[in-house]
Write a protein that binds this DNA or RNA. Structure first.
Lengths: 216, 216
DNA sequence: GGCGGTGCTATACCGGCGTATAGTCGGCCA
DNA sequence: TGGCCGACTATACGCCGGTATAGCACCGCC
């Protein structure tokens, strides 16, 4: 990570690639607004002017990063998909540092309002909706909402990585923390959390509130 | 004076209260960094200098807002708790606009790194952990991770409200959208999503990856 | 009636941001 | 060898952020 200077492979990259990589790292870490072009330039070991020379503007650089990372992710997903038919869109055992960084980046991009990331979110919702119809038909009668909530929770938890990691005592964007999180997630998806009594009461409360809202 | 809205009750508030309310609204909507003291002043119908006069600095204003909103939330929770013993920390049928705004605010505060919000997150994790031990002892053998994931997903979904709302076709911070979301959430908590075969394979994959990571 | 303090405004200041521009270095081709 | 072109730097510009300061209007108190 902290290729200050001296890492041979890192030094061998073209300046353009170094800028892109540094930008991805910093955007993923701090978000778009909190990252300055001067920060990126320093991290890449170049002058700030070079960013403009190669990418035109900060916004264009961000789009290039979006494109790069999102492409990498769909490629990874395709590989995973053919490799073992894990068709579930829920979670993948993504433990390689690069993959983790990519997820971190996309999560931030979602919060930063990146159109590309938003499109990916929509795709995932659509995919999940289909998957539900095929593989888990009984769980709900509002597939759309269920899929939206599922994808939102999954990506949202990554957005809360600081807090989840703190509670866990391990960074969920490292292999160790990610696996512990994945374990809990598996528990979560395999057992119902609420007992039927409680669920019935909750449903009743919801329908009452809905009726009250419509009546008003 | 007499700025955005001619609402009488609004006009009757002291300038200090108007500033606080405007700040809460804007912080909740755009986050801390993206809202300027000039924005807040304009929304409150006062001059920018007055913010400094009453609160000292932007950061101090934010802390005052944190304090105010968080207090409001714990008060609401206490009321809910005594009213009907809904001891579950999972979700509350919070449909009042003020409550929804409060939740939106805290969610953003979590992303913005507010210490108070983070403390509340930790409290919720601890509470959830206890609750799990009492009310759902069988679901996992890593209570801590389970609770962290649960709270992270729940709050994270709110952080993704833009995208979830877009997928849903309804803003989840309005009563209508929130109830639809709550319905899906109830489905989610009451039925296992993954079938045992799939779960077994997932667990196996996780343990393999863990072993590989430790071996390395 | 004068008078001090408080709520409030107007304006100025400084730093950091993204961006623009002029200029330097070095390799490649005629 | 001369010249050109792309990679790259140094420096400056305009803008806008939070903040500081000076001054004004009002109101209770002696």
């Amino acid at each position: 990570m902290g290729h200050a200077t001296g890492d041979a492979a890192y030094e061998d990259l073209t300046a353009r690639a170094r800028i892109r990589d540094a930008a991805i790292r910093l955007f993923a870490e701090r978000g778009n607004d909190a990252t300055t072009v001067r920060d990126i330039a320093q991290a890449a070991g170049v002058s700030p002017g070079l960013l403009r020379h190669h990418f035109g503007s900060k916004e264009a650089l961000r789009e290039a990063c979006d494109h790069y990372v999102l492409d990498r992710i769909v490629k990874i997903k395709e590989e995973l998909y053919v490799e073992n038919k894990m068709a579930s869109p829920s979670f993948l055992p993504s433990v390689h540092p690069t993959i983790l960084l990519s997820y971190k980046y996309v999560t931030r991009a979602l919060l930063d309002g990146s159109p590309r990331a938003a499109a990916m979110f929509d795709d995932m919702v659509a995919l999940t909706e289909q998957w539900l119809g095929k593989n888990a038909p009984g769980v709900t009668d509002d597939y759309r909402a269920y899929a939206a909530v599922l994808v939102g929770m999954q990506s949202g938890m990554l957005a809360m990585h600081d807090h989840v990691s703190r509670a866990l005592g391990a960074d969920i964007f490292t292999t160790e923390g990610h696996l512990r999180m994945a374990g809990a997630l598996t528990d979560f998806y395999s057992h119902p959390l609420l007992d039927p009594d409680y669920v019935a009461k909750a449903r009743e409360a919801i329908t009452q509130l809905r009726a009250a809202a419509e009546g008003a």
